[in-house]
């Protein structure tokens, strides 16, 4: 049996272990809340994390991978949340690397590690490349935060800028003719 097929035989176990490990990156009292709430509106972090893990497990364990759009959508579901929570960048993205430890831990029960050494390395490289994509999304989210801060300041004072003649429209109105008048 191929390495990925072996992992697929434990697919649900791997997904649950990975998801629970990500939940456990939150404070102890919160991990339980994330695990138990199934209502996507009452527990969006738990439900979105679960959805992301399911999609990423598919990507990592199947022979055919997700296309870029689907992969980014799955990562966005997880990373967009962690990018605004109280995590360092490393800990926000680090959730993805947790699957390496989980697979290494569960593998002895499924088969011998040494029989699949090359496949394990290939699998872990795949995790690394997914994490790099996640890093791109993380930076995109953080950049967006700064852009939104700027936009908010501009919106807040929109009419004051106009009153002070500081907007492009106002500048356009200040033609030499209007000055003479």
């Amino acid at each position: 049996m191929s390495f990925l097929a072996l992992l697929r035989s434990d697919r649900e176990g791997i997904a649950i272990a990975w998801r629970d490990a990500i939940y456990s990156t939150y404070p102890f009292d919160t991990a339980g809340f994330l695990r138990k709430g199934q209502d996507e509106f009452k527990n969006p972090v738990g439900v979105r994390t679960d959805a992301a893990v399911q999609a990423l497990v598919k990507h990592l364990l199947e022979e055919t991978v997700l296309d870029d759009v689907a992969l980014d959508a799955a990562l966005d579901e997880l990373v967009r949340i962690r990018a605004v929570q109280d995590f360092t960048p490393g800990k926000a993205i680090g959730a993805l690397f947790l699957i390496k430890g989980i697979v290494r831990q569960r593998l002895p029960k499924l088969g011998k590690l040494k029989d699949h050494a090359e496949a394990v390395l290939r699998f872990e490289s795949k995790v690394d490349s997914v994490a790099l994509r996640a890093f791109d999304i993380y930076v995109k989210c953080r950049t967006q935060l700064y852009e939104m801060r700027l936009k908010e300041i501009k919106n807040r004072h929109a009419m004051l800028f106009r009153h002070a003649g500081l907007t492009a429209d106002a500048a356009a109105e200040e033609t030499p003719d209007s000055d003479q008048q």
Partner: peptide, 8 residues
């Protein structure tokens, strides 16, 4: 803030 942030 708790639902979205997770700080007990």
């Amino acid at each position: 803030f708790y639902i979205g942030g997770g700080d007990p």
